[in-house]
Simulated scan of single mutants.
Amino acid sequence: MTQHSRDLSRRRLLFGGAAVGAATLLTACTSNETPAASTQTKAAGNSEGNNAPGKKVVIGFSAPAADHGWMGAIHANAKAQAAAYSDVEFKEVDGGSNSEAQRSTLGTLIAQKPDIIVVLPHDGKEVNAVALQAMQAGIPIVNLDRAFPDALASRLVIKGDNYGMGVSAGHYIGKMLKDKGVANPVIGEIAGLEIPLTVERSEGFKAALATYGFTVKNRRSAEFTSDSGQREASQLLQALPKIDAIWNHDDDQGIGVLAAIKQANRSEFFMVGGAGSKLAIDAIKADNTVLKATVTYNPSMASSAVSLARLIAQGRGLGDLTELQVPKEVTLASETITKENASSYDKLGF
C-alpha cells in the first residue's frame, strides 16, 4: 500500500469512527483519551450545559496541508466537531505548504472578521506576527499544537504534552532494558522536524532515560514523513552495528523507519513509536515487528480546540470549573500503548 493510500484509509477510518473527537473535554479537559464516536455525537447534541445551543459564532480554521496521516486527522476532527454544533459556522482556509502561504491565507481570513480563529501553524515563530494581528483586531486566536513564542499572540494554547511524550517513551525503554538486565544499552532516537515541539520531546526522553543511568547514543532528525524516516533510519542503522532500543517520534514517519529496518534485516532491538496511528496500534497488537509500543499525541486535540473556541466566542466557560472563562492553556496527557492495552485505543487510531 502506498503512503497516499494509507493516509486515505486513515481518513476514512476517522470519518467513520472517531471523527467528532473530544466534545467531552467540556467536562474533563485533562486527558487525551476520547470515548467512542457514538458517545461523542450524543454529547455534542446534548441540550444541557456547555453543549446547549448558544449565540451563533463563526470559527475560522487554519492548519498545514493534510499530506500526513496525523495532520489529516487534525483537519477532519476540527471539521467534524464544528458540524456537531448547530450554532457554529466553520470557515477553513488553506494552510498551504509553508509559513508564507499560511500567513497570506490567514490575513484574508482575518479580513473576513470571524468571531475566533483556531490556528495550527507551520512554525509558531514564523506565523506569530499574523496571530498578533488577529488578536489586536479583537479576534481571539486558539493556538493549536505548535505554540507561538509570544503569549499575546493567542487567547488559548491547546497542545499535546511533547515533553511528556519523551518522558513516556524514555520510561518504557528504560524499564524494559533494566528488566532485561542491559547495563550499557545502545539507544537510538529518530526525531522529527527540528521545531520547538521536537526539541521538547527529545528533552523529555533524555530526562527520563537519565533516571535509569542511560543516554541516547545516536540521534537523527527526520521530517515527520515516511521517506525521511526511512532515510534517517538507514543512516542510524549503518552508524550503530548493534542497537538495544530506538524511539521514533512519529508513527507516520515510522512507516519508513520500519521499512529501513526490514531492508537492513535488523531485529536485535525493540522500538517505540509516537502519536498512536492505527497502523502502529495494529502492528503492536500483532507483535510481528520490532515496534512494541507507541506514546500518544492524539489529533483529537483539534476537536477540543473547536469546542473551546466556540465557548470563548460565546463568552462562556467550562461547566465543571468555578472560573467564568475557558483556561489560558490546556495540555493533553501522553499515554503509552502496548500489546496489553492496544485494543482499548483502537478507536483513537488515526
Rank of each mutant, 00 (worst) to 15 (best):
P196E: 02
I195T: 13
V186I: 15
M176A: 15
I195G: 08
G188Y: 02
G204S: 02
N184R: 11
G181N: 10
L177G: 07
L177I: 06
K180S: 09
P185S: 08
G204W: 01
A191W: 08
G181W: 05
D179S: 03
M176P: 00
K180E: 13
L177E: 02
D179N: 01
V186D: 14
T198E: 15
I195W: 05
L193K: 10
G192A: 14
V186E: 14
F205T: 00
F205K: 00
L197E: 07
I195Y: 10
E203Q: 10
A191H: 08
V182N: 12
K180A: 14
R201V: 05
L197I: 11
K175I: 04
N184D: 13
D179T: 01
E203G: 00
K180M: 10
P196K: 04
I173R: 13
G204H: 01
I173Y: 07
E203L: 06
V186N: 14
P196V: 04
V182H: 10
K178I: 01
I195K: 11
I187A: 10
P196C: 04
E194T: 14
R201M: 07
L197V: 10
K180C: 03
A191Y: 09
K178D: 10
G204A: 01
E200V: 01
G188Q: 05
N184I: 04
I190R: 08
M176V: 06
L197D: 08
E203I: 04
E189F: 13
E194D: 15
